[in-house]
Amino acid sequence: MSVNYEPVLWNRQKVIYDVVLVGSVVLYLLLFMHFADSIGGSLGVSNLDVRGIRIRAFGSAGFILLHVILSIGPLSRLNRKFLPLLYNRRHMGVTMFTLALWHAHLATGWYHDFGNIEVPLVSLLVSNVSFFTVFRFPFEILGFAALCILMLMAVTSHDFWLANLTAPIWKGLHMLVYAAYALLVGHVVLGALQTNRHLALILVVAVGMVWIVAIHVLSALKEAKQDQAIAIPDQAEFVEVGLVDEIPNNQAKIVCLSGERVAIFKYDGKVSAVSNVCQHQNGPLGEGQIIDGCITCPWHGYQYRPEDGASPPPFIEKIPTFAVKLEGDRIFINPIPNRPGTPVEPAVIA
């Protein structure tokens, strides 16, 4: 078994990724503050409110980055060339959270310090109590709720939590990001866009929203089309799932058996079937390839042996396997998964 599993620590691509990420964020913040300053100067505004400008620079930077974060998943499903952006998405999440936290900190201090309610956070929550209105709704509370979600995601983001919460729960938690996005659209529409009903600002927020919804719908449609659902006849032990020729060498075909996706790999003149779900973060293994004899996940490169669904030592991840047999060119699979890591004899192509 040849395994070139280098520890996933710092490497050149990760460094480039982070330099570009942090560099763009810093570039945006500096440009925003510089141009705000020079426009203010040219309008003859004295005592330009730099803290207010910082609040807007950090808030908008976080909001823009959130659009990028939310785009990567669907875009990589639509076109796999986007996958390198997905690889280190967590650093984007952390960066976005940091921007949002600083924005919230600045806004709370700027608008709530020195008042007759001592604790700024309490002041934030009780100053405007027009909860049953639309345009007077305390938009800050929407931002606060979003920040709580982002914080929850940030504190549970380490692989320690991923392993202990198990990938499905962790993924469910991560799906809350969509709630956070919805809250933040409300935060911006009922806040900044009320104070400044500039058509261009309304348009960019609307275009961002349409973009996010559209790419999610498109990628879901594409996935639904790919998901070849296979009906399981009663009491059938094996189900036909396709032909050997359909599968490119060292790649897989994904089929859906009673709601569960199975990846059927062809390699070395053999066929094996495993669960499509990567143990790391639910990456789609069937979109990966066999590299150095191992199924390699397209998201972060976790590897599993096709024969038993186990990661090569020293790694301990295991995925369920499925019994396979061939009749001529036709592939049959037992839809009942074996326990993760169970060795299964690959079907040999005649």
Binding site: S24, Y28, A36, V45, S60
Partner: peptide, 22 residues
């Protein structure tokens, strides 16, 4: 993407109303 970031950083401050004469 970096160019887009640059355009936004340049353009957004000009449509914000953060320049009152107070």
């Amino acid at each position: 993407l970096i160019a887009l970031v640059g355009i936004l950083g340049f353009w957004l401050p000009s449509v914000h109303n953060q320049y009152s004469p107070g």
